Amino acid sequence: MMKLIKSLFAIAFFFAINTVSAQSIASKWPQLNDFQQLLVKTFEPAGEGNFGPIKNSCEYLVEKAEALDVNTMPQDLRNPKADEAVVVLKRQTKLVAELVRTKASDVELMKSFQKLNETYDRLLSLYEPKK
């Protein structure tokens, strides 16, 4: 349980760091903004042990992920790594929804949700200025 709590804090930290980057990218790509808004609304309660929002919204999250079509991605955001990250993001979102449908444990659901979040973070990191 303590390990899960530490993981949740780490993910919350990543969300905080990526907020500025996510906002600038999302302002260019409305579909990504929609996905990000729902991801935050479902993840924050899960971090507090409340899995109701993700369980109730997982199909909607899949819809938002499916809307992330590389053809609607702004040209200045397109690159092969971003295209690949979007494909993985869609697949992981479907996996989270499948775990909800099959009534997987909260621990298993959280692990999958963390992987989804990590993929989202990787997508955002593609646009961070090089240091």
Rank of each mutant, 00 (worst) to 15 (best):
E63N: 11
K55Y: 09
A26G: 15
K41D: 14
A22C: 14
I25V: 15
Q36E: 15
C58T: 10
E63D: 13
N56L: 06
N50L: 01
F35W: 06
Q36A: 11
G52E: 11
T72C: 08
E48T: 01
P80F: 09
Q37L: 10
S27K: 13
A67D: 15
K55L: 03
Q36W: 14
L61V: 00
S27N: 11
L68V: 10
W29K: 00
K64M: 09
I17M: 10
N79M: 07
Q31N: 08
E66N: 14
A26F: 07
V62D: 10
G47S: 13
I54V: 13
L77D: 08
N50F: 03
N33T: 15
N18C: 11
E44C: 00
Q23H: 14
N79S: 09
E63Q: 14
T72Q: 14
G52P: 00
N18M: 13
S21R: 03
D69I: 05
Q31F: 10
Q75Y: 09
D76H: 03
P80D: 14
F51A: 04
T42D: 04
T72G: 09
D76R: 00
L61Y: 03
T42Y: 01
W29A: 05
Q23G: 08
A26N: 14
C58V: 13
V40G: 02
Q75K: 11
L77W: 03
R78K: 14
L39M: 15
Q75D: 13
F43G: 02
E48I: 00
F35C: 04
A26K: 08
T42V: 13
V70E: 15
A22Y: 08
P30T: 10
E66C: 04
P45A: 07
N56E: 08
Y60D: 12
K64V: 04
D34S: 10
T19C: 03
P45W: 01
I25Y: 03
E63W: 01
F15T: 00
L32V: 07
S57Y: 02
I17R: 12
P74E: 07
F51H: 00
S21K: 03
N18K: 12
K64W: 00
E66I: 11
T19Q: 12
N71V: 05
S57E: 12
T19P: 00
R78T: 06
E63P: 01
P30D: 09
N79G: 08
Q37A: 13
W29D: 04
I54C: 03
I54W: 01
D34I: 05
S27P: 02
E48F: 07
M73P: 04
P80G: 06
Q23F: 12
N50I: 02
S24G: 01
I17K: 09
S21Y: 04
R78A: 07
D34V: 02
M73G: 04
D34R: 01
K64Q: 11
D34M: 01
K28M: 10
N56C: 03
P53R: 06
I54G: 01
C58G: 01
L61P: 01
P74N: 07
K64E: 07
I25E: 05
F43V: 04
Y60W: 02
G52T: 10
Q31R: 08
K28V: 00
E66Y: 09
P74R: 09
E63F: 08
L38P: 06
S57W: 00
Q75A: 14
L77Y: 04
G49Q: 05
S27H: 05
M73L: 15
R78S: 08
V62A: 11
L38Q: 12
A22E: 09
